[in-house]
């Protein structure tokens, strides 16, 4: 079966001006990303702030244009289209298939539009339905996400965060999409509401045969919802594997760090102190030479400081680490208290 989306050699950089008259500096937000999304799967993209996961999502939905590379989409008729080169008008039909759910339920709904109009807007833009049919379709979409269609005449501010997120999901679903990109869709919600939305996303996936790209920083949620995981660090994919493989046997030291940093709701598994990456994520403007993670990696060697490792396949995992075969990393499924190695913040 064809991949639904195939991202090839995608790079995106932002240019910033330093000061009023200073020179231009270029920040690489994404560097040479290769990624395939299979139909029907939930692919998670995880990483910390500034890793490029949001930029990648936005490049795929064409809210941003990458500098180089391709985003190949396979619509139902089986042909392959590079979305990157499309003009606005050419892109419009595919916007029905590829939809997005936003992080912040407060800012993603227009405060000046009634909920009915917010959900009806995509139908109106694509001239899919009007009158009675439009009302029915909006009502169906709202019902699907658990919002009473009678509440459609209200404005978004009358709804709680969780309800607003449901409305945002209804807006994405009303066009019968094939791929939904959820950018930190549950991060801003309280835990109990987060669980409701996660369950809803799962149910909708089954009902509509959706494919998800689930962008998140929360590995607990990612383990729960996704089939495959891509770990990003400083604009690179450093590891890509099945969820279970990745959590069981991480191959990249950064993945291990992320897994160990995840607080687990069980005081018996409380970490003494962790393996811990040293220091903090470097500013994206000073991307280290060689492996982007070498400044914080406990296994770093000279080679890591000079050669950038490519993503390569080891067993079921794709990983960008020179020593992936030799290093021993801990997974997240152990229930034993986590041992520790002392940490020191490096300059």
């Amino acid at each position: 079966m064809n991949d639904l989306i195939r991202v090839e050699n995608l790079s995106k950089s932002f240019t910033l001006r330093r000061g009023l008259v200073g020179g231009l500096i270029s920040l690489d937000a994404l560097k040479d990303i290769n990624l395939a999304v299979r139909p029907g799967e939930t692919l998670a993209i995880v990483g910390e702030s500034g890793c490029g996961k949001t930029t990648l999502g936005r490049c795929i939905v064409k809210a941003m244009t990458p500098n180089t590379g391709k985003v190949l989409y396979t619509p139902e008729n089986g042909e392959t289209i590079d979305l990157v080169g499309l003009k606005k008008r050419q892109m419009k039909p595919w916007r029905r298939d590829i939809r997005m759910i936003f992080q912040d339920p407060m800012s993603s709904l227009n405060p000046y539009m009634r909920v009915f109009d917010i959900v009806a807007e995509p139908l109106r833009i694509h001239k899919i339905a009007k009158g009675r049919e439009l009302e029915d379709r909006v009502a169906t979409a709202l019902e699907k996400v658990g919002i009473d269609p009678a509440a459609g005449q209200r404005f978004p501010h009358a709804f709680s965060g969780g309800q607003r997120q449901r409305i945002g999901i209804a807006r994405a679903l009303v066009l019968d999409p094939r791929l939904v990109i959820a950018d930190e869709a549950v991060s801003a919600l309280d835990v109990s509401i987060q669980a409701q939305i996660l369950n809803l996303l799962e149910d909708l996936k089954d009902d509509f045969g959706l494919t998800y790209i689930f962008i998140s920083h929360d590995l607990g949620v990612v383990n729960y919802i996704s089939d495959r995981v891509a770990v990003m660090y400083l604009g690179n994919i450093v590891e890509l594997a099945d969820t279970e493989t990745l959590f069981e046997r991480p191959r990249h030291p950064y993945t291990e760090v992320l897994l160990e940093a995840l607080p687990i709701a069980d005081p018996k598994r409380r970490a003494g102190k962790r393996t811990e990456a040293r220091g903090e994520i470097p500013y994206i403007g000073n991307r280290p030479k060689g492996c982007p993670f070498h400044t914080r990696c406990r296994f770093a060697q000279d080679r890591c400081r000079n050669d950038r490792p490519e993503l390569r396949k080891i067993d079921a995992t794709e990983v960008a680490c020179h020593f992936a075969e030799t290093i021993e990393l801990r997974g997240a499924y152990d229930s034993a208290p986590r041992p520790h190695i002392s940490q020191k913040v490096s300059p």
Binding site: A63, R95, S107, S108, N110, M113, E121, P122, I125, H126
Partner: peptide
Amino acid sequence: DFVVAAQLDGASDYRVIMRH
């Protein structure tokens, strides 16, 4: 986000400006 959302809906510039 709601303006980006309108653009991702496929709305024209005119519609994004006037309506959103």
